[in-house]
Nucleic acid binder design. Structure first.
Length: 374
DNA sequence: CAAACGTGGAA
DNA sequence: TTTCCAAGTTT
């Protein structure tokens, strides 16, 4: 695919760089394999892209391996119980992704005969697939020549052209610029090359401009202002909230009483020990008197957790509870089953605090940390 | 359009 | 310790 036009030299230089420096990732077809005719599996591309939304490669890798081992294709995932999918996602965060992932799998399996739509426009209609993910799947799995704009691409492009417009308004200019650079030949590799460049060279802090194939063309670097892009709005301070969580332990077998959170909202659809609301007031619903049912509650210290938009400190209370608590919804979960019980990280901290700090279980055996799902 | 929505690692 | 933020989507 020769291209003599000057503007395409940018794409050619980036692709040459990618051919030599592409990261080796579990969901990726290497540029060499791709050149030899290997095609990407849309299922794996989709799964990885959803997992990678606002999430680091390092965090995603073990989850990706676990998912593809357990559910090798979209039909298998569609046939899974939603609770199992939520359980396997526990710890990855942004749990609406897991619910949308399952819904999307069912749509693809039921309405599209198990095959992902082959264009960005139609992928965009599926749950959990937005502007970025639809373009990424279309480019990587179907070689559609669409601009793929993620955080890496925003950074690389705003630096290349010294775009002063703050995000997210700058996205229009970024997309336009990218469309002009985009090669017709290797859109999938180009998209991944942009992201690799942003992740390994054109990093948020201390970019390695000396290693960059676009160094001679970069307006920000030529002015020594590479770390001034992209321009972003300031973030407001995170408020503090408090609450209390109550870990009921059944003495006979060490099972813990868990309930399911509402399907949408914070930690939607995930499991938890019963807890109070999380008040922004320092004197909010705390103390043993806030418990959902009476028991000999003992203080187990606190569990602290930082969410995107607020910090939380939860008091942890623990008690032996022999029978189903009256007037409550939930289920007993054995210690060995806690790993697959869809406990988000915050709740894992709560349960860990209770089980590790509570008085020695003497003759009944149980307790210990919550195992990771797997 | 702004806000909600998790987590863990790096500086 | 605190702040930033990583392959965004939904409402």
């Amino acid at each position: 695919m020769p291209s003599e036009s000057p503007r395409n030299r940018l794409a050619e230089r980036l692709l040459d760089w990618y051919d030599r420096h592409a990261r080796d990732l579990p969901w990726r077809v290497s540029p060499a394999a791709r050149a030899a005719g290997t095609v990407a599996d849309p299922y794996r591309v989709w799964l990885s892209e959803v997992m990678l939304q606002q999430t680091t490669v390092a965090a995603v890798k073990p989850f990706f391996e676990r998912f593809v081992n357990k559910w090798p294709d979209v039909a298998a995932l569609a046939a899974a119980d939603e609770a199992d999918v939520m359980g396997a996602w526990a710890g990855l965060g942004y749990y609406s992704r897991a619910r949308n992932l399952h819904a999307c799998a069912k749509t693809v399996a039921d309405d599209f005969a198990g095959r992902f739509p082959g264009s960005a426009a139609r992928l965009r209609d599926l749950p959990g697939i937005g502007d970025y993910t639809s373009a990424a799947i279309a480019a990587i799995a179907f070689d559609e020549a669409v601009p793929v704009v993620d955080g890496n691409v925003e950074r690389v492009t705003t630096r290349l052209l010294a775009i002063e417009t703050p995000l997210p308004k700058a996205k229009v200019a970024i997309r336009a610029a990218l469309a002009a650079i985009l090669p017709v030949g290797r859109p999938g590799d180009f998209a991944q090359a942009m992201m690799d460049l942003g992740a390994t060279v054109c990093t948020p802090r201390k970019p390695a401009c000396v290693l960059c194939p676009w160094r001679p063309d970069c307006r920000a670097a030529s002015e020594g202002r590479q770390e001034s892009f992209p321009v972003k709005p300031k973030k407001s301070a995170k408020p503090q909230r408090r609450g209390a969580a109550f870990v009921a332990v059944r003495p006979s077998d060490g099972a813990i009483w868990l309930r399911r959170r509402p399907p949408s909202g914070l930690l939607g659809g995930m499991s938890e020990p019963p807890s109070t609301g999380w008040s922004s007031r320092a004197d909010g619903e705390t103390g043993a008197s806030a418990a959902p049912f009476p028991a000999a509650w003992q203080a187990m210290g606190t569990a602290a957790h930082g969410f995107t938009h607020f910090d939380l400190v939860l008091e942890v209370w623990c008690a032996d509870v022999p029978d189903v608590p009256p007037g409550t919804q939930g289920r007993w979960v054995l210690p060995a089953e806690l790993g697959g019980a869809a406990l988000p990280t915050l709740m894992r901290k709560v349960v860990d605090a209770a089980l590790t700090r509570r008085p020695s279980p003497s003759a009944r055996g149980s307790g210990g940390a919550v195992p990771r799902s797997g």
